[in-house]
Design a protein around this nucleic acid. Structure first.
Lengths: 347, 347
DNA sequence: CTGAAAGCGCTTACAG
DNA sequence: CTGAAAGCGCTTACAG
C-alpha cells in the first residue's frame, strides 16, 4: 500500500525534491529550474494529484474562490433568464482562470449569515454582487471589511467602487428617441423598481429623451414595475386608460407582460400601441410580434466582472475600475419601424 | 491593539476557556456545560466571530460545502427556468442547514478540471449532479472516488445510486391518456433528448399510453427535441405534415416553440392541434392559450436533493436513497378539455 | 535554484 | 465537562 491520501509529500518523494519545490511549481513560482519543474509536473500528472484546497486556503490566505451574491428580495425574479446568462459568464471566466464560484442567494432571513461567510469566514477571495438594491447591506459590509468586490451595475452614491455596467441612461434615451422619431405622440414607460440603479437610470433616460425633444413628461404615462412579467401586465393595464400610443418598458420580461395585457385589451402591436423593451432576452426575437429592444451583453458583464474581480484580488490597493459595456438597439416589429418603412415605400 | 485577525484563541481568552472548548461549542458538541456554552456563545456574538472555513476544512476534513454540477453540453439550455428553480431549492436547503453552495457549470473543455476539483481537491463534501447525460463522465468519477453524491433524475443503469426524481414515465403516460380520453386520434410527441433519462422516460410513458389503449405507435408521430424552444419549433414543423390532432411535448419550453410553429402554420390551439407540455413553468399559465402541462416540483427537488446529500455526508456508508416527488396534470386551455366540456354542457 | 522549518486556524483523540 | 497537544496539508520567509 502506498498511503491513505495523496499529498504534496508523496509528490516530493517521487520527484526527488522537497515539498517547498513542489509547492513552487504548483504556484508557478519562476524560481524553479525548468527541468525540475518538468519532473514535478509529470509526477503530479501521473498520480493525478490535486493540492488540497483547504490547506492552500489556510496557508496562503487565498482560496481562488469567487463569491457571487444575489440579494433575493423577490425570489421569483431569479427565474429571469438574466441570471443564468450572468452566471454563465462568471463561470466561464472562473474556468478559464482556475477559479471556482460560490453562489449565495441572499434570502432576507439569512442575509446576516451570508455576510458573515463573506467577510469573516474567509471562504472567498472576493465577491461579485449582482442586482442589489441601492442601499444593500451586503455592499456596506464588504466595503467596511475591505473585501475585494465588484458590482454588476453602478452604485448611486459611492463613486469609488468597482463595477461593470452598461450606460442604462443613454441607451434608454436612445430607445425612446427612436419611438419619438417614428412619430408617436404619447410615449409611456414602465420603469424598473426605483430602488435599483438600473430602474432609476433607465427612467432618467426616458425623461432625457422627452426633454431633448421639448416634450413635457406626463406623470400619468410613467409607472413603476418590478422587472417581473406580472408587474408588466398589471402596470400596462393601469396605463391603458391614458391612451399611450407607444411604450418603453425597462425589461423584456416586463414587456412580455405588457404585450399580454395589450393583447387582452384588443390592442394591436404596434398599430395601436408600439413597444420597446430592454435586455434582448432569447425570447424577444420570438415573441409575437418580435420585440424591438435594447440589447445588453449580460454574459459578457459576468465574464468581465469576474476577471475584473480577479485583478482586484491580485493587485492590493488597486484603483477602482469602471467598465461600461456597449448596448445596441435591436429593431424588430413591435416598434412599428418596419411597418412604417414599408408604407412609405409603397407610397 | 487587540490583534490582527480574530481567531478562536481570542474567543477562548475572553471566555476564560481553552480553544478546545470554544471549538466544541462551535461544533455543537453536547459535552459542554450549559453555562460555559452560554458564555462562549455570547463572546462570539459580541465579537462577531466566524471560524475560518479553510482551517475547519483542513482540520475536520469537512467543508460544509455542497457542489452543484451541471454538465453544459448545450450552454443555451442553462437559460431554461428549470435551473434557477433548482438552484433556489438547493440554496434554500443550504441556508437552512448552514451549508454553502459551490457551482460548477461543467463546460466540456473544462470537464476534467471540474472533476479533479470535486474528487481530489477536497473543496466539497458532496455533489448534486443535475441534467446529466446518461453516460456522464462526472458520474463515473464520483462513483469510483466514493464522493457522496445525488443525482437529480434517476440513472438508467446504476440502481445503487441516490437520486431524486419524479415518475416521468407514469406522469407522461397519464398526460397522453388525458389526450386520448378527450378523443384525439393522432397524438404525436416531441420527446426530450434521448441521451437524457428524462427524455427517455417521458417517451416511454407516451408509448405506454398508446399501448394501454391498443393503439399502435406511429413512428412518424414521434420526433426528438433537445429541450430548447428552437427545437420545439422546428420539430413541430417537421411533424405538421403528419397531421397530428394533438401533441405531448416533453417540456414547456419546447411546447412554447411548438405553439409558435402552429401559430405560424395557421393552426388553432386546441381546435386544430391540442397540446400538453411538461414542467409547469411560470410562463405556462400565461401563454396563449394557457398551457395544459405536467407540473413537477423543481424547487422541491433541489431542496430535497440537497438535504438528502447532507444525510449521505453525515452517515457514512448510508444506503442509497430513491426519492420520487409527486407530479400533477394541470389542465388549462391548450388541451381542449375546457372547450369540450363547455360544448357538452351547451348540448 | 533549493530545502528545513515555522506557521496558517482550526479539530479531536487522549487523559483527567 | 475540560484542557494540552498533535496534526490536518499546504505556503513562505529565511538561509544557503
Amino acid at each position: 500500500m502506498t498511503s491513505d491520501r495523496l499529498t504534496i509529500i508523496e509528490i516530493a518523494k517521487q520527484a526527488g525534491v522537497s515539498r517547498s519545490t513542489v509547492s513552487r511549481v504548483i504556484n508557478d513560482d519562476p524560481n524553479v529550474h525548468a527541468a525540475t519543474r518538468q519532473r514535478v509536473r509529470s509526477v503530479m500528472q501521473k498520480l493525478n494529484f490535486q493540492p488540497n484546497a483547504a490547506a492552500r486556503g489556510l496557508a496562503a490566505g487565498k482560496t481562488r474562490i469567487l463569491g457571487l451574491v444575489i440579494p433575493m428580495g423577490v425570489a421569483a425574479l431569479f427565474s429571469d433568464p438574466y441570471f443564468p446568462q450572468l452566471i454563465q459568464g462568471i463561470s466561464a471566466a472562473c474556468n478559464q482562470h482556475d477559479y471556482s464560484t460560490m453562489l449565495w442567494l441572499a434570502e432576507p432571513e439569512y442575509e446576516r449569515r451570508t455576510i458573515q461567510q463573506i467577510v469573516s469566514a474567509g471562504m472567498v477571495d472576493g465577491v461579485i454582487i449582482a442586482s442589489a438594491l441601492t442601499d444593500d447591506a451586503v455592499i456596506e459590509a464588504v466595503r467596511t471589511h475591505k473585501v475585494p468586490f465588484v458590482l454588476i451595475g453602478r452604485h448611486p452614491v459611492y463613486v469609488d467602487i468597482t463595477y461593470v455596467d452598461v450606460d442604462n441612461r443613454v441607451s434608454a434615451r436612445d430607445a425612446v428617441l427612436h419611438l419619438i422619431r417614428l412619430g408617436y405622440k404619447r410615449v409611456a414607460t414602465i420603469s424598473g423598481p426605483l430602488n435599483m440603479i438600473g430602474g432609476l437610470d433607465r427612467l432618467a433616460g426616458y425623461k432625457d429623451a422627452l426633454k431633448a425633444r421639448g416634450i413635457v413628461a406626463d406623470p400619468n404615462l410613467i409607472a413603476e414595475g418590478d422587472f417581473s412579467e406580472a408587474s408588466g401586465y398589471s402596470t400596462m393595464q393601469q396605463l391603458l386608460p391614458q391612451e399611450p400610443d407607444a411604450i418603453f418598458v425597462a425589461s423584456d420580461t416586463m414587456a412580455l407582460g405588457a404585450m399580454r395585457a395589450l393583447r387582452e385589451a384588443g390592442k394591436r402591436i404596434p398599430d395601436d400601441v408600439a413597444i420597446v423593451g430592454y435586455d434582448d432576452m432569447p425570447f424577444a426575437a420570438r415573441s409575437d410580434p418580435p420585440l424591438t429592444t435594447v440589447r445588453q451583453p449580460i454574459h459578457r458583464a459576468g465574464f468581465v466582472g469576474a476577471e475584473t474581480l480577479m485583478e482586484l484580488i491580485s493587485e492590493q490597493d488597486a484603483a477602482p475600475r469602471r467598465v461600461i459595456l456597449p448596448t445596441e438597439l435591436v429593431i424588430r416589429d413591435s416598434c412599428g419601424a418596419r411597418v412604417m418603412r414599408e408604407k412609405k415605400m409603397r407610397a
